[in-house]
Amino acid sequence: MFKYYKGSFIFTAICLAIAAWLGWGMTGALMGTLGILWIVAVLGVLEVSLSFDNAVVNATVLRDMDAVWRRRFLTWGIVIAVFGMRIIFPLAIVAVAARMGPIDAIILAASDPVRYEQIITDAHVGISGFGGAFLAMVGLTFFLDEDKDVHWIGVIERPFSDLSRISGLAIGIVLLVLYGMSRLIGPEEAMTFIASGIFGLLTYIAVQSVGALLEQEEHVADAAGTVARSGLAGFLYLEVLDASFSFDGVIGAFALSNNLFIIALGLGIGAMFVRSMTVMLVDKGTLAEYRFLEHGAFYAIVALAAIMLLSVRFAIPETVTGLIGAALIGLAFYDSLRSNRRDATPVTATGEHLDHT
């Protein structure tokens, strides 16, 4: 078990050391430094709890990638996750929203964190539209699959599986939801919300198209080229997926701190553990052993997408988001155990299961 999390613990130690240095520089006092360390630790735990469904979905993609691309996911991927999504992405939002250069955005984050936080918060409508639309497509595509033969909640999943013959149904559903939510907010925000949602849809289509093109080239590639191309397509998909999962976490982190660098350290720790968890799920074959775990994760994705889209009109606490995802995955895990136990129980001549317990 430790081999999967060794890098995460080392990364955590480094981040906590940096946080202590920052805390001492900001407060010059032991209690202030301990307070900063506590915030970083809480942010790390929060990120893990909110992103467990992300780890399960990542594992569904990662299990088809070779060891080389798995290592790249844990190295290049963590660099993109920590520095790209937790530092560069918020700075880019501030730079665009405030119409300033990237250097000015960094200076603003360091010198006036309150205004920096306000700019990020004001961009919530656009972020929710983009992330909600992308995640909705990820979740709906899983259920709108005519080849899907394992169902957890059959009364819901079977009809969706049959409806998969309708071309573009998932896109139509997301567009209708975007339009419906836009009617509940002001005209200017509605325009931003719909435009961001459309870009979320286009991003999903673009990622899928790149994957399809790379898979098509596999038929004429040699063995080494095939692995590289498959890994690249999966890597791109995972990074966009991680970005979409991170939107809410980045914004919600401001409830604990408005310092960009403290937020990046805390969420970075969580992101590293999520990646280690993903690789462990793949190596141990957990998804195959617990057949409904994947279903629970995709239900959690649909729930997260709905919460992101609804949040432009209604205030939904981060705690609710985390609890819904954890509950769905927990129920899926429990039902998987029951199903495995039932399959392992001997059957009598009358078709009844014998329970030796």
Score class of each variant (00 low, 15 high):
Asp147Asn: 07
Arg338Gln: 14
Phe73Gln: 10
Val240Arg: 04
Glu215Cys: 06
Ala123Phe: 11
Leu304Ile: 07
Phe142Lys: 09
Pro159Ser: 00
Ser257Pro: 05
Gly101Leu: 05
Leu323Trp: 15
Arg275Ile: 06
Ser161Ile: 06
Asp149Asn: 08
Gly23Arg: 01
Ala92Lys: 01
Asp222Glu: 02
Gly129Tyr: 00
Cys15Pro: 00
Glu157Met: 02
Leu169Pro: 05
Val68Trp: 13
Asp53Met: 09
Ala105Tyr: 00
Leu135Gln: 01
Ile14Ser: 02
Gly23Glu: 02
Leu108Trp: 01
Ser8Ile: 10
Thr345Cys: 13
Ala228Pro: 04
Asp248His: 04
Leu178Met: 04
Ala190Val: 00
Leu163Tyr: 12
Gly28Thr: 05
Arg72Leu: 08
Thr350Ile: 10
Phe9Val: 09
Val82Thr: 12
Phe89Pro: 06
Val57Asn: 02
Thr121Glu: 14
Leu265Thr: 15
Ala17Gln: 02
Ala123Ile: 07
Ile93Ala: 03
Gly44Val: 05
Glu352Cys: 07
Phe273Pro: 02
Gly139Leu: 01
Ile119Asn: 08
His356Lys: 12
Ile93Phe: 10
Ala98Tyr: 03
Ala303Phe: 01
Leu304Gly: 09
Pro113Leu: 00
Ile251Asp: 05
Val114Tyr: 15
Ser167Asn: 12
Gly32Asn: 02
Ile36Leu: 03
Asn340Gln: 04
Leu108Gln: 00
Ile127Asp: 01
Ile194Trp: 06
Leu202Ala: 15
Pro346Asp: 09
Val220Leu: 06
Ala306Glu: 07
Gly129Arg: 03
Ser167Gly: 08
Phe261Lys: 11
Leu74Gly: 06
Leu328Pro: 13
Ile301Thr: 11
Ser339Tyr: 09
Met26Lys: 09
Phe292Val: 08
Val138Trp: 00
Gly101Met: 03
Gly330Trp: 01
Ser8Lys: 12
Lys6Gln: 15
Phe52Ala: 14
Gly234Asn: 07
Ser51Arg: 03
Ser8Gln: 13
Ala297Asp: 07
Ala344Val: 02
Tyr4Ala: 05
Ala97Gln: 15
Gly28Leu: 01
Ala81Arg: 07
Ala326Asp: 12
Glu289Gln: 06
Ala297Tyr: 07
Val347Phe: 11
Tyr116Val: 10
Ala170Ser: 04
Val82Phe: 13
Met26Leu: 13
Met85Pro: 09
Ile173Tyr: 06
Ala17Thr: 12
Gly231Lys: 00
Ala327Cys: 06
Phe333Trp: 14
Ala97Trp: 01
Ile324Phe: 12
Thr203Gln: 03
Ser339Phe: 13
Trp24Pro: 05
Met277Ile: 12
Leu213Tyr: 13
Trp24His: 05
Ile14Asn: 01
Ala195Ile: 09
Asp355Gln: 10
Ala306Met: 10
Gly168Leu: 02
Leu265Ser: 14
Ala29Ile: 04
Ala224Lys: 04
Leu337Val: 15
Gly132Asp: 01
Met85Trp: 10
Ile153Cys: 02
Ile171Cys: 10
Leu30Thr: 14
Leu214Gly: 11
Ala170Lys: 03
Met26Val: 09
Leu135Trp: 00
Ala190Tyr: 00
Ala59Gly: 08
Ile324Ala: 14
Ile324Asn: 09
